[in-house]
Amino acid sequence: MTDTAIEAAALGKRFGGPSRRGGWALRDCGFRLPAGRICAVVGPNGAGKSTLLAHAAGLLEPTEGTLTVLGSHPSAARERIAYVAQDKPLYPQLTVTETLRLGHELNPGRWDAALAERIVTDGHLDPAARIRDLSGGQRTRVALALVLGKRPELLLLDEPMADLDPLARHQLMGTLLAEAAEHGTTVVMSSHILGELAHACDFLLLVGDGRIRLGGAIDDLVAAHRLITGRGPLTDALAPHTVIESRATGRGLTALIRPAGPIAPGWEAAEPSLEDILLAHLRSPDAPALLTPGATARSSASDMSAAVTA
């Protein structure tokens, strides 16, 4: 058992072959996700969130760099990973019951039929209904039943709650988090809606332009930033700190900084909300990346290649 759920080093993925210029969905992407975390992967559309999750699910081969999952190559960890793609792929011709049977047949020895059936029953789904006749939200529920029934150590969910109404979202998220807490499952959820996952998660990866721009435990990330407000000469007050974003407000100037020393007197410092931090980074694409020590890839390149060949 490893204490690392996902570790990426210099991960890069280019679509369309080397002849096409650009086309990098991920580039120089490195981070470490400790096991047992509930991790939000956020970022604008097209940032590379889905590509990152597909790599962790063993569906894509990196163009460059490496990615290990649960201490091994993704293909070797297939039994311990569960993945729901963004469009919730399910076989339309199967019934709900047959879809769960498929989960049982393809995951022998791991399948928790009672749990999967409970998730479906909670949604008042007709077990004999065909997948093609279900609504988007009902399909999401079946897809989640399928992955939770597998009892994974790492659960990868790409935009999981987008199709759900608020009530179902709350209820399913509750089930998900309860299962994760009970079994120590690491959960990775992507979303482009910042607020959607903030309350459920304790770890954050902000993806932008194919790279990790922020990575770490949410508490650590919040503690690393300060929202300062005040009047006066801008440069003096902010000089030693890393300024993510500054803008004029009614009272003078507000800036989100990563403090690198005491804050100049006369400036009011407050703890920013997670949303403040995320929005400031999204508005300032050139802000330097920040990975907390716990979120930094530890393995050397040779260790990673050993894991790949193993």
Binding site: G58, L59, S75, R78, Y83, A85, P89, L106, G109, R110
Partner: peptide
């Protein structure tokens, strides 16, 4: 084409 391979290929059966 329909993307169900991403379901099939992420089960315990390889």
């Amino acid at each position: 084409e329909s993307g169900t391979h991403r379901l099939a290929w992420t089960q315990s059966a390889s």
